[in-house]
Write a protein that binds this DNA or RNA. Structure first.
Lengths: 237, 237
DNA sequence: GGAGAAATTAACCCGTTGGATAAATACTGT
DNA sequence: ACAGTATTTATCCAACGGGTTAATTTCTCC
């Protein structure tokens, strides 16, 4: 807007910050869609509406670009995690909310799953070199530790589980279902991503974890409690 | 051994079946170590002790090779699965055995995890084209269905869960832990693959699933049952 | 209003890689 | 023993892909 006088149509405009963002966004899509080796630098440039040289100018070579994307992805989820305050909720409710958040986040950010898969296939080679990520400890572990302690003290939970194990299990139930939905859908011959299937999955996961913690499946599942419960509800859970 | 008379040292011998096996084994290693795009046809040939031309002669191009490896991997696990007979065990024992088998199989066959990850990153593009795999429906689902039904009828299980959900959850708990151990180890700053960690993980998984099904955490966990259980055992589970 | 720095474009370089072609060697049946 | 086929080796190549070099254009500050 500086020289408002229609001097002449510019061939291009400067926008370093915007360019960097577009590059990182394009790279995120490309890396998550094709993995590290499968990603094409030229496609990233094209998707970012830029010249290939810009990647190297603003970020660095392919590997640095990839690491930047990965760090950005971790940064994003960590920041959303901080927004959750499980402290106020009563323990079972807190765990339920945590499960729902995890599930929802993975659903809303499929690239995050792909990036993690890619990085794990590389045995975390890049992540190990990252100083940033190591300093972004998940606040969840401590959050969960307190929730579990409170739950045990209040009698809601029957068992004091290791918060790291619980965190991993909660992530696992959502992560695997979604990241492997493609092959699983083929194997089972049913679409695991349609609305109904997703609802059932969430119910199943909450039920499973909370039943284990509270020992009261009844609260959350359709239960079959009668001594000889011939007609157990065979749904969901 | 045919012409035993030391006629002359041969430059090479024919061995089509052996060659094919060596190629597939080498390809399995290469694809699981580097993914589809990252795999190098020349390395596969070298690892198989063969000429690159052999791959195309015996199997086909890179994609066909990859699919052959993938089908082989599924074939292997399915065949081991058939060996498990959960029918005879009482329901909780059967589930426990299933969890241990899954965990053990993934531990013994890390390439299987990598191949699945790779294929899922490709959104099962290749698997969908495979006629073989689709016909290998996992017998597990039916197995599990019966186990669950028996468990509900005997009163061991409080809830009749969907066998597909249960199967996926059991796989998820092991799969995610192992396939993502690299990044998780970095994040949590502890080695998830050392002996102790693995033992704890298995105990946690069995405990979680069985507690949810039976509603009796007591049977499997170190439990905190007292009304105000201040000193809950904080281990494992 | 123009000089110098910052940002962007355009063109090229060169090792790699999947795949193909052609020639050589080992078998098999007759 | 030898003709014909199956299997394996030895080269080659065109396209691709990451990265670089050099020239162009825009912006900023004095």
């Amino acid at each position: 807007m500086a020289k408002a006088t229609a001097k002449r149509t510019l061939k291009w405009q400067r926008d370093p910050e915007g360019m960097r963002l577009r590059i990182l966004e394009a790279a995120k899509q490309e890396f998550s869609a094709h993995g590290l080796a499968g990603a094409r630098v030229d496609r990233i440039a094209a998707k970012a509406g830029a010249n290939k040289r810009m990647l190297y100018y603003h970020v660095g070579n392919k590997d640095e670009l990839y690491l930047a994307v990965l760090e950005g992805a971790y940064d994003k989820i960590r920041s959303e995690e901080r927004g959750l305050d499980l402290e106020h909720l009563d323990p079972p409710e807190a765990i339920k909310r945590l499960i729902e958040f995890t599930w929802g986040y993975f659903l809303r950010n499929p690239e995050f799953l792909s990036l993690l898969q890619t990085e794990n296939l590389a045995r975390a080679k890049h992540l190990k070199r990252s100083t940033k990520v190591k300093s972004m400890h998940s606040p969840f572990v401590e959050m969960i530790r307190t929730v579990v302690r409170r739950g045990v003290e209040s009698g809601d939970f029957q068992v004091a589980v290791d918060p790291v194990q619980l965190y991993i299990s909660i992530a696992a139930l959502s992560f695997f279902y979604l990241s492997n939905s493609a092959t699983l859908s083929v194997i089972f011959g049913r679409d695991l991503l349609d609305k109904k299937a997703k609802d059932e999955r969430l119910a199943h996961m909450s039920g499973l974890v909370l039943a284990a913690l509270t020992g009261r499946s009844a609260a959350l599942f359709e239960v079959a409690k009668a001594p000889k419960p011939r007609s157990a509800v065979a749904q969901t859970v």
